[in-house]
């Protein structure tokens, strides 16, 4: 079997891609990864594997990707620049490619002060945009940072994240443009709760021709409870949860809130499917992988297309 990116194949064939997320465990048990993976099998095209998210020590993203790959799914290797300098980042790109991982998402990473190692040094040698550029140069030109040639280039469908909801508002599209100009093939956005604001951002991106240059996947996260909605609004920087949505969650009894959260998520996906320039959806059901299948089903995203070359 040739190693190809399923995500890339689906997108290049004009399909509406579906990705989801698997957070590796705070431990060394491979079954913890594989259990989550099974919940996603057949429901999504590719699985993002987070890299010590919220700066908490977890099984390495690369190792978890390897487990997921062996299980027959298409992993997206998330890599943050917080913990590794350019030597380690580029080395891991080569290693990931060598074991058949075909997607990478280049991120800054949550600041180390948020996690369980607040005394750690933050490396931030490259930033996420420089990292995207480095991966693209490795792949397309066969060179590393500084220009030295590689004996064999890595094969990586390269992605970056975008947050349409952070400030300064006017500059968010400029930053998206920089990521795409750096070489991002695909973009996964921050969770969308404020569709109007998202549409404004995407409209500017469309006007600049950016939606033609990269595949943009809208991010969604099902709310588990009204409390979670309030928490995300007030405690998570760069997250825009409109009051109206919080009231909607509060309007149903506690035991129905998960269901309501899924409904909101499905409605968002329905709107994203109708939005020109959106090429897929990234479902981040945080520690709630069980919900992904139902969301995909109800949003009319199943069955996932069969890709011939896999």
């Amino acid at each position: 079997m040739k190693d190809v990116s399923r995500l890339k194949s689906v997108l290049e064939k004009g399909g509406f891609a579906v990705t989801s997320e698997c957070g590796p465990p705070k431990g060394a048990d491979p079954q913890a990864v594989l259990r989550k993976t099974e919940l996603l099998r057949g429901k999504v095209d590719s699985v993002n594997v987070t890299d010590n998210q919220t700066a908490i020590v977890r099984m390495s993203s690369l190792a978890a990707c390897c487990l997921i790959k062996k299980a027959g799914l298409d992993p997206v290797l998330q890599m943050v620049v917080r913990d590794r300098n350019r030597i380690a980042l580029q080395s891991d790109i080569l290693g990931a490619s060598a074991i058949g991982i075909r997607n990478v998402l280049c991120l800054s990473g949550d600041h180390q002060s948020f996690g369980n190692q607040p005394d750690a040094v933050g490396v931030f040698d490259l930033d996420s945009i420089q990292f995207v550029q480095a991966v693209r140069n490795m792949r397309d030109q066969g060179i590393i940072v500084g220009g030295e040639p590689l004996s064999h280039p890595p094969d990586m469908f390269t992605g970056a994240a975008a947050n349409p909801f952070a400030d300064p508002m006017d500059f968010r599209v400029v930053r998206l443009a920089k990521k795409i100009n750096a070489g991002a093939d695909f973009i996964q956005t921050q969770c969308i709760y404020n569709m109007e604001r998202f549409d404004r951002w995407l409209g500017i991106a469309r006007d600049r021709g950016l939606t033609e240059k990269a595949y943009i996947l809208g991010g969604v996260t099902p709310l588990k409870s009204a409390g979670m909605a309030r928490y995300m609004k007030t405690r998570v920087s760069g997250m825009d949860v409109p009051d109206q949505l919080i009231r909607r969650m509060e309007g149903v009894s506690k035991d129905k809130q998960r269901e309501e959260g899924i409904s909101i998520c499905v409605e968002t996906i329905e709107r994203l499917k109708q939005t020109p320039g959106i090429r897929g959806v990234h479902i981040m059901a945080i520690e709630w992988e069980e919900a992904v299948g139902e969301i995909a089903e109800r949003a009319g995203l199943l069955p996932r297309p069969v890709i011939d070359d896999q």
């Binding site: 917080r82 800054s108 990473g109 600041h111 002060s113 933050g122 931030f124 930033d127 996420s128 945009i129 420089q130 994240a161 975008a162 947050n163 909801f165 952070a166 400030d167 300064p168 500059f171 930053r175 920089k178 921050q190 920087s237 760069g238």
Partner: peptide, 13 residues
């Protein structure tokens, strides 16, 4: 805080 040369990150509010 993240020494970004091509910022701002998604946490600027």
């Amino acid at each position: 805080s993240k020494q970004l040369f091509n910022g701002p990150c998604g946490g600027s509010v």
